[in-house]
């Protein structure tokens, strides 16, 4: 059976991709941020995962308000980078783990989840940036296949935090029941604290972010029990997307080891966090 080798959490701020493109990696502004990912990249090199399940949100680039799924599973063979307004970024397409994605979809429906089933879509910075942070930008092809899970964190009502945690548990079951030798990682992306719109724009909450990085490892049931409003109050209107980390956390066991973690503020307007977890 397939094996879940770890859970990764990371911010997915678009400026991160832009900074890399503009050659700002080693500037005083960005170097401490990117250096924080070096141990995680080493961890990836050691574990060589075959499949990355990436939990993220489309930021109204590939989907519009006409039809917003609460969450969706990508079953496609390939995902091209979407044009977010500047033309599609010059990175290779992502190969889908289509066969597992269908198995996941089957498993979810059998467990009373209601996914949208996606067979054709492009992906935005929400998936691209985490892949670049953990794997680096490849010259020709990504060394890992992806299964995108799209979550609605922008059009209210967004899902309850505990629903996403439960989704993660079924995801974990789907991996464990998948007849394959492949090694899986699950990426929870988004956050940490930020607010981009309204008079509260620019809100960040570093103490809460640091506490989250501790609690997501040690006390996920507590975080899953929070209301959506409490996420917004604590992490900002857009920072509430942090609930997507709960899918990653739910796929892991109750007890985990924190292999690496990092925090940096602000990356653009966001408290930026990273964590690498393994089952204890």
């Amino acid at each position: 059976m397939a094996r879940l080798v770890g859970g990764l959490g990371t911010s997915h701020v678009p400026s991160i991709g832009a900074a890399l493109e503009k050659g700002l990696r080693d500037t005083p502004e960005w170097k401490p941020f990117f250096d924080g990912y070096l141990p995680a990249r080493q961890w990836i090199r050691e574990h060589q995962p075959d499949v990355a399940v990436v939990v993220f949100n489309d930021h109204f680039n590939a989907m519009f308000l006409d039809r917003v799924p609460t969450f969706a599973v990508g079953c496609a063979a390939e995902y091209l980078p979407v044009d977010e307004g500047w033309g599609p970024r010059a990175i290779p397409p992502f190969e889908g783990a289509s066969h597992f994605a269908w198995h996941l979809t089957d498993t979810l429906v059998e467990n009373h989840f209601d996914p949208e089933i996606i067979q054709e879509i492009k992906v935005d910075h929400g998936l691209q940036v985490p892949m670049e942070l953990f794997w680096g930008k490849p010259s020709d092809a990504w060394p890992v296949k992806v299964v995108p899970i799209f979550v609605n964190v922008l059009q209210y009502p967004i899902p309850l935090p505990d629903r996403l945690y439960a989704l993660g548990k079924v995801l974990g079951q789907a991996i464990e029941s998948y007849d394959s030798d492949e090694k899986f990682v699950v990426l929870g992306t988004g956050g940490l604290s930020h607010q981009l719109q309204g008079a509260r724009a620019g809100f960040v909450n570093p103490p809460a972010d640091r506490q989250f990085l501790k609690d997501i490892a040690e006390d996920p049931d507590e975080l899953a029990g929070w209301s959506r409003q409490r996420y917004i109050e604590t992490f900002g209107g857009e920072g509430a997307e942090l609930i997507m980390w709960l899918v990653m956390r739910g796929a892991l066991n109750r007890d985990v080891l924190v292999k690496h973690q990092h925090y940096f503020v602000p990356a653009s307007m966001t408290g930026a966090g990273m964590i690498v977890l393994e089952n204890a």
């Binding site: 059009q155 209210y156 607010q195 719109q197 509260r200 409003q229 917004i232 109050e233 209107g237 857009e238």
Partner: peptide
Amino acid sequence: RIPDTPLLDRERQ
């Protein structure tokens, strides 16, 4: 409910 967070205002959305 949470000041200045337009995301939560359905009519506005």
